[in-house]
Structure formats: structure tokens, C-alpha cells
Design a protein around this nucleic acid. Structure first.
Lengths: 231, 231
DNA sequence: CTCCGAGTTTGCGCAAAATCAAAATGCGAG
DNA sequence: CTCGCATTTTGATTTTGCGCAAACTCGGAG
């Protein structure tokens, strides 16, 4: 539990306004869970009977199309509530959540949702704020897919991951969780072949360095140019 | 105001659980507005100082990219609350809303939002439900853009409009608000040329009929096949 | 140490769709 | 009725990026 304690600071954003006793109350009702990399936290279509707080690690939210392809909708960093579909009146999860890296969550039975909303000040506001942010992201994502060329999309995708989760290392900024070419392809609506070609080209240009499942951006500003956020 | 009265029945879904006196109370605080086709209801980036209930007509929600292209994110039918970003902690509107056809809205100053939430039972639940639905739609939209080929996307887009707003006419189902080829292109991330070619081809096949700004689907099941919702 | 498999790289040809260009068609205003 | 503009259609050309195929590389299991 040393790991848990150390994660709590980062992970308790939704409960920021609460006092120590209230936090204890909430934690006492939760079940901590550890998820290996790649493990399924919940699956699309399952009965939505729990919601989670991501304490540590990263979660990939994806959807499987009727024809079997997977689309990665979003990555979530620690501190986010996940699986909150039931709060929006859904009885089943609308997407699947996988641990993108070894992760730590707290899980609560869904009936506690309304209790939390009623009892803890700031909880509802925090949730709505998070939903607003996710709307924003989804709108961006749609706009990007609809207007940008493949290279721009991939550049924007890498930048987004860097912004959300980048950590400084010598020589650049690295993405803090394992990402394969195929993952990036699933996010950007292209193929792993194309992603591989682009990353190779960028590596030749000195814009990024990548080992397997692992990307370091050495010249973020040049990626920004490619992504077309500026003229 | 005859028009308004007649619209109220359809438009008051968010207040379904209220009694007559409560509805009167709410209406008394609202300002009705008429919007011509193409008129702007609110604009991306503006201070979000009001929210709206769409009583009649259809609203197009769109976003303008830094490079000037427009992306249509969604169409909203009567009965929907729009401009509810402030409820999610935003101070500015995250997208632009245009009247897709002549429309009628009620507008409230944003400070009433929390009053409504506190005072009227079912209001919060209705809002959350609507947000859940929009998340679902956005996820679908992303998945569609990411995995489907152009013809499938356009087919799915036409079907979506038909499902949301279709009205039966002799010979098929028509989309109830004006849509141009360019509009469809903005929704599906393609060009109006391609959309035009597809619609022409479908017309030759007898799947749709279209005059300008106006589409009637005569064989929905064949569009479904094209959209790839089935194997 | 070697084997194996997941992940990655690369080449080539092709089909889909964008772009360029131009004409045709309606619709509404005067 | 006619003009002008917005919308739509269509053709020719070019580009993009996907599908297929094959090879390579790294890292871990035995």
C-alpha cells in the first residue's frame, strides 16, 4: 500500500475540497485494484455497476466497431474518474477501458455515485468540469479527423500525448506510457504502416527518437509546425 | 405566439416532470427568440452568458479550425437544451450554433442554471442524460471518421439525419431541414464534389432523391447496407 | 544461447478521393 | 422576364495513403 499512499496526492483531485475525515470515509468504501498493462478495466456493453478513480497509470478508452476494428478514443491520466456512464443514465458502459500501463484504481459500486453527489461538496462540479473537458477533446478530435491530413493528425496525436503525459528526460520529452505504432494508428484513423513511415521520417529529421513502445520528442516545436496548429 | 404555444408541447422535454405552475415560472423568466435560417445563435469563444431551449427548428453545431475550415459537429432537434457549456464550468462557448432552419428558442441568463438544477426535479437528470447521449454520438462520430471509407461515412451521415429528423412523405423519408452537399462534406470530412458524385450515383440507383438543399431517402435499407452497420 | 513472437520497417502497385477546371442548373430579386 | 448568385454536376488529372508482402529487430522465455 506504500504505492497507494504515494499516489493519493495526485489522484484525489475530485475530492480536493474535502477534509481528512471525509476522504477517509470515501476511501473506506472503495476497493483498490491493480491492473496489469493491457488488462481490461471494464468492457463496452457490460452492465455498468462500478465507477473508478484512476490513481496511477494511464487508461486507454476504446470502442470496437461492428466490423471488429478498434478505435482509441482517449487516454486518461491519473486523477480522472472513469466509467461514469451510469451517472449519465446509462446502464451499460459505452466503451472499453484498458490499462495502458500498470495502473491503480479505486472502485466504488455505482449506488454510491448519488451518495457522493449529495454528500460531498465540489464532487458534482468537478465531474461536470471533467465532462466539459472531455467534450472539448472529442470536438477537437472530430475536427482533426475531418480536416487534417494524415501527417498532421499523427503529429497532433503525438503532441497531445506529450502534453498530457510528457515527462522531461535528457534530450527531449518522453511519453509516459507504452505506445505502439498500431496504437497511434488506431487513434488517428490510419494504418500502422503509415505511422511507422512517418516516425521514421521524423527520426531522420531529428524531430523524435523512438524505441519500441516508447517515444521521445526532441523538437516539439517542429512537430507543432507539422501538426498545423499554426498557419 | 401561436407558433410558440404549438411548439411547447414538443420542446418541453427537460421539464416533463413539472406541474403547470412550475412551467409558467420557468417560462416567465425566459426570453423567446426567433432565428432565421443561417442565423448565429451563439459563437465559439464568446462569453457564455445564456443557455437555450430549442423549441422548434434545427440547430447546427460547428467549430471553425485555426485554418478556417468549418466542421459540423452535430445537428440538434427541437426539445434539446443548447449552449449548456457554462454548466460544465466553461465561461465561453466551445462551439458555434447556427439555425439550420428557421428556429425558435427560449433563452435564459446563465445564472438561472443552478437555480433550475436546485429547484426543479428531473432537470439535472435530464441534462446528464442528454450529455450521455451526446457523448455516445461523438464517440460514434470519431469511430466512424477513423475507420470508415468515404462512401460509408456519407451514407451513415445521411442515415443519422434521417433517423433524428426524418419525416415520412410519399415515396420515402425526407430530412426535415435544409442540407447542402457542402454541409454533408463538412460533417463527413470530405469534399462537396465527392458528396455530389455519391448522391448522384445513389439517385441513379434509386436509393435517394434530391433537389437542392433537400434530400429524400427512398430505400433506407440500401443506405444501411452501404453505411456498413451490417457485416 | 537460441528460439519465438510481438513490434517495426520498407518497397511497390493500386484504388480512392482530392484538386483543378468548367459548365449547367435553379432560385430569388429586381 | 432576366440577371446574378449559390448550388450542383461532371470530367480530367494528380496525389495520397492503403493493402499486400516480406524482411528485420528487439526482448524475453526456456
Amino acid at each position: 500500500m506504500a504505492r497507494l499512499d504515494e499516489s493519493l496526492i495526485a489522484g484525489l483531485a475530485p475530492f480536493r475540497k474535502l477534509d481528512r475525515a471525509q476522504i477517509r470515509e470515501i476511501l473506506d468504501q472503495s476497493a483498490p485494484r491493480r491492473h496489469d498493462e493491457g488488462a481490461e478495466i471494464f468492457r463496452e456493453g457490460e452492465e455498468a455497476d462500478r465507477f473508478f478513480l484512476l490513481l496511477d497509470g494511464f487508461v486507454r478508452v476504446l470502442r470496437t466497431t461492428p466490423t471488429g476494428e478498434q478505435v482509441i478514443l482517449r487516454h486518461l491520466p491519473p486523477g480522472q474518474l472513469i466509467g461514469i456512464a451510469p451517472a449519465m443514465g446509462r446502464t451499460t458502459y459505452p466503451a472499453t477501458a484498458l490499462a495502458a500501463s500498470e495502473s491503480l484504481t479505486l472502485a466504488w459500486p455505482v449506488r454510491l455515485w448519488s451518495v457522493f453527489i449529495d454528500r460531498y461538496e465540489g464532487f458534482a462540479a468537478h465531474t461536470l468540469g471533467a465532462m466539459g473537458q472531455r467534450f472539448q477533446d472529442l470536438h477537437d478530435h472530430v475536427a482533426e479527423l475531418a480536416t487534417k491530413a494524415v501527417e498532421q493528425r499523427v503529429a497532433a496525436c503525438v503532441l497531445r500525448m506529450v502534453n498530457q503525459t510528457g515527462r522531461k528526460v535528457e534530450g527531449g520529452i518522453e511519453i509516459a506510457f507504452p505506445v505502439t505504432r498500431a496504437n497511434i494508428a488506431e487513434m488517428t484513423g490510419t494504418t500502422l504502416h503509415t505511422v511507422s513511415r512517418l516516425l521514421s521520417a521524423w527520426e531522420k529529421e531529428g524531430i523524435v527518437e523512438s524505441r519500441r513502445k516508447h517515444i521521445v520528442v526532441t523538437q516539439p516545436h517542429r512537430l507543432m509546425l507539422l501538426s498545423g496548429v499554426v498557419g
